[in-house]
Structures are given as structure tokens and as C-alpha cells.
């Protein structure tokens, strides 16, 4: 059931695409093998047949389901089908909280399921009659206070992270009371969602930072540098993104940054992105970090795909920005910008 392969096959229209480096998963799924759900169905059937004679078989059904989920969760985490790669310190903090909650809830889940299954396996009480017990104050008190304590702990432990992400503390990524004057950002851009793409507009680094970035977000300047579906920054940059939309609600989702923010029609939402890690390898190849839309925005909602490139340093980023600027101010057709491939080259494919 568990494969050792390091690639996962995905069938797309142009035939089967091999994704190199994809983590191994519970099973290798091929076109003809739809047997696993059938096998699980078979197990349920067997449990039912056995239960016709031994009613405790129902405990096995609950136990089997519990085991399936546990196996699934552990194997997912082990094989990398889990939280996406983390791209910032805040993302690490979010992951820490996630795993804390995961651990606490798992304990509770195993506890309750354990009690349930254990109860099912118990022999009938003596004489076939259970005691007529209506409750127990002490027990009620225990299982009121213990969860309350844990939940309050969860509520408190997350507050600093939330404040860092969205609160009033300096550098919060979505300051509730945004102060243009004290903006710590070193890169400013607007991201405008529309059906169905992201239009990026970078503030030109040659120009002084605008006095009021919120105003700049609504009034383009001639020096701005434009891009579609591509968010570029450099490692260590604090990126101020002004999120806008022209038509419906979109949600700007960067999985690697654990970042998600709706764009509201009629509003400019300032958000700060900490870019602590780069997705450019030492050899210059790029790990793909994608942008997705997380709020239904019409039929082609799924098409709002973009990519994030966090360059290794500011110079690399400026190279990209200057290239972008140069191609945007072309006064004559440059041969390099849009090469028409040579026929020989095309035929070799």
C-alpha cells in the first residue's frame, strides 16, 4: 500500500505528467487501480457479517476507522503532504501553533475514541442491568474545568502571533490602524484582483516613498512598474502590499507565507509581507511558490494562479525590476523580448 517512489502521477489532458520530487504517498494511484475504496468497503462488509454473530465486531469497525485516520495523518505528515514549505518566521510561528493544537486535539480524540471502543468491548454488567446512575458532580466539574483550562491556554497562546500578523504592534502585517507615516516597508506595491488575474503595480524605487501609500494605491503614477500574476521581492524585504479589487471579492492567498487576505470592493487593505526565505536555489533554479485565490470570484475562480519569486538579495530583485521597467518603456521592438523560435528548434521537440 505504501510506495517507495518519489514521484506522483497526475493525469492532465496532455497525457500523464510526471511531477519530479513529489513526495511518495500512501498509494500510487494509476488509472486502473480504484481498488482501495473497494477494499475498505469490503472490510466494512466483513465487519457487518461478523457482527451478525459477534456483536462486539462493531468495536472493530470503530477501531478500524480510528486506525485508518491515524495512519493517514501520520503518513501524510511523514511524506510531506502537509503544511506547505514555510517562507517566513511568522509562518513558522503559525506552524508551531498548528502543531500545538494538533497535539492537544489528537490527545482528546484518542481519549474519547479509546473510551468509546473500550466501552463497546466491555462485557454486560452483572445481571444484565446497569446501575441507575444519573450523574456525578465531581466528574462534571473535572470535564468542565480541564477543557476550559486548555482552551483558555490556546486562546492566550495565540494572541502574540495574531498581534504580530494583524494587530497594533510595529510591523504587523495588517495593522488595524494603518499609519502611513511609520510604515516600515522597504517595497511598496498594489495588488489588484480582477476576474481573473492579479495585476501588480510596483512603486518605482527611484522615486521617494509616497507620503500616503493609501492614496498612491488609488492613483497610479507614470513611473510605476507593472506586472501580471507575479509577485517579486527579495529575501529579508518587508513588502507593503495594497490589496484592491475592481469587481468582486477575491482573496490573496500565499500558502508558503500562511498569508491570506480578502480584497474588498471599494477598499484598499494594507498588508505587510515578511520575506525571510528565498525560493531561488543556490544554482539559480526556482522552487515554485504559487499564488491562489481563496474566495469564490466567478466561474474561473480556479484560474487566478500567480507565482511568488523571492530573490536571494536586493540586487537580484532590482535586476528583475529594471528589466521589467526597460521592457515596459521600449520605444522599438526588441528582438530579445519576444523571440520567434527558429523552425529547426521547434521541430526538434
Amino acid at each position: 500500500m505504501i510506495t517507495e517512489g518519489t514521484s506522483t502521477k497526475v493525469s492532465g489532458l496532455p497525457g500523464t505528467v510526471e511531477i519530479a520530487g513529489a513526495p511518495p504517498y500512501l498509494f500510487e494511484w494509476s488509472e486502473s487501480a480504484h481498488w482501495l475504496p473497494l477494499a475498505i468497503t469490503g472490510l466494512a462488509l466483513i465487519a457487518w457479517i461478523v457482527s451478525l454473530r459477534f456483536k462486539r465486531a462493531w468495536a472493530a469497525l470503530f477501531g478500524f476507522t480510528l486506525a485508518l485516520m491515524a495512519l493517514w495523518t501520520l503518513q501524510s505528515a511523514r511524506s510531506g503532504l502537509w503544511l506547505p514549505e514555510s517562507a517566513s518566521l511568522i509562518a513558522d510561528e503559525v506552524d508551531g501553533l498548528f502543531h500545538l493544537v494538533m497535539a492537544l486535539t489528537s490527545i482528546f480524540y484518542l481519549l474519547t475514541q479509546g473510551v468509546l471502543i473500550w466501552t463497546l468491548l466491555q462485557p454486560a454488567p452483572p445481571g444484565g442491568r446497569a446501575a441507575r446512575v444519573h450523574g456525578n458532580h465531581l466528574l462534571e466539574l473535572v470535564w468542565f474545568t480541564v477543557p476550559t483550562g486548555l482552551l483558555v491556554y490556546i486562546a492566550l497562546v495565540q494572541l502574540p502571533t495574531w498581534a504580530k500578523m494583524k494587530g497594533q504592534v510595529p510591523g504587523a502585517y495588517l495593522a488595524a490602524g494603518y499609519q502611513p507615516a511609520s510604515d516600515p516597508a522597504d517595497l511598496l506595491l498594489t495588488v489588484t484582483g480582477r476576474q481573473w488575474e492579479w495585476r501588480m503595480r510596483y512603486h518605482s524605487p527611484d522615486q521617494p516613498m509616497p507620503v500616503n501609500p493609501l492614496f498612491w494605491a488609488a492613483t497610479p503614477a507614470a513611473e510605476d512598474i507593472h506586472a501580471v500574476n507575479e509577485l517579486h521581492a527579495w529575501q529579508g524585504a518587508k513588502v507593503r502590499m495594497m490589496l484592491r479589487t475592481t469587481d468582486v471579492i477575491h482573496s490573496f492567498f500565499l500558502p508558503q507565507f500562511r498569508f491570506k487576505q480578502d480584497m474588498l470592493p471599494g477598499k484598499t487593505i494594507p498588508a505587510l509581507l515578511h520575506t525571510d526565505r528565498s525560493n531561488i536555489e543556490a544554482d539559480g533554479t526556482e522552487r515554485v511558490w504559487e499564488i491562489a485565490c481563496a474566495e469564490l470570484c466567478g466561474g474561473n475562480h480556479y484560474r487566478m494562479r500567480g507565482k511568488v519569486v523571492i530573490h536571494r538579495d536586493k540586487k537580484e530583485f532590482m535586476d528583475w525590476l529594471n528589466r521589467q521597467k526597460a521592457s515596459q518603456s521600449e520605444r522599438k521592438e526588441s528582438a530579445a523580448a519576444l523571440p520567434t523560435p527558429k523552425p529547426e528548434a521547434r521541430e526538434n521537440q
Binding site: I19, Y25, W82, L83, E290, N300, H301
Partner: peptide, 19 residues
């Protein structure tokens, strides 16, 4: 947990969703 958005017509468009 992997970040698969809901209401997607064709998730295979995204590299991080293909696995």
C-alpha cells in the same frame, strides 16, 4: 492543511496541488 482551496474546478492547474 496542504492549502488546497475549496471550490476549485481544476486543482491540477497548480503545481502545489498536483500531488
Amino acid at each position: 492543511i496542504g492549502g488546497h482551496p475549496r471550490r476549485y474546478y481544476d486543482p491540477t492547474l497548480y503545481e502545489f496541488l498536483q500531488p
